[in-house]
Amino acid sequence: MDERFTLELRDISFSYPARERRQNFSLAVKHFVPSGQCTAIMGENGSGKTTLGKLAAGLLRPDAGCVLYDGEDIAGWKLGQIGRQVGYLFQEPSRQLFTPRPLEELSFAQKLRGVPQDEAEDKATELLRQFELEHIKDNTTYTLSRGEKQRLAIAAAMVAQPRFFVLDEPTTGLDKRRRGILAETLHSLMSKNVGILLISHDCAFVDEMQADIRIMDGGGLVDA
């Protein structure tokens, strides 16, 4: 991971499929390149932060314009290929937890990709330790507390070692100490040249990450 990953959004416009009697949300972003190592997107509820993050991670495809990874248009990429470059943390943690045991949660995707069992489990254990989840590694995933689920989901997003992260409100449900640990983890990722797009309402955390702040309002980025 030597080369810094560059993400670029160019002349993006997007709107959710119209349904009758519903007000339609549309997003328009002329040009957006996360400038620093960590860029924070802030703004009111419903201003389109999550939508922007999903567009950046290829989860939603823009109606017009393009998303470029290292200068390459991702329009034709498969989600799995995107996932190897960019990690994405959903705002809702329970939708991205798949297995009954936390340890398996961190190892199964690697196994599906052909990583040998031992190696996958070593890495999973290491991540569990890092996020202080070791003691519950054999509990039931679905009955974990909100904050434990959140940490597990973050750890799971890190397994594939992507070069860029889109984190949608990663601090929701975390206590003060765990927020500190998350900040540390993210800082150490940044020192390995991994870029971060942080969507958050948590001013203190954004400060702690020394992020460049961009504000969203009504589906557009407010000029910096």
């Binding site: 498969k78 989600l79 799995g80 994405y88 995707a109």
Partner: peptide, 20 residues
Amino acid sequence: EELKDSLTALQLRGVVIEEL
């Protein structure tokens, strides 16, 4: 809806379904 979301989340873990 949930099934669709989970499928997306799974692929974003770097699993290319077509290659499996």
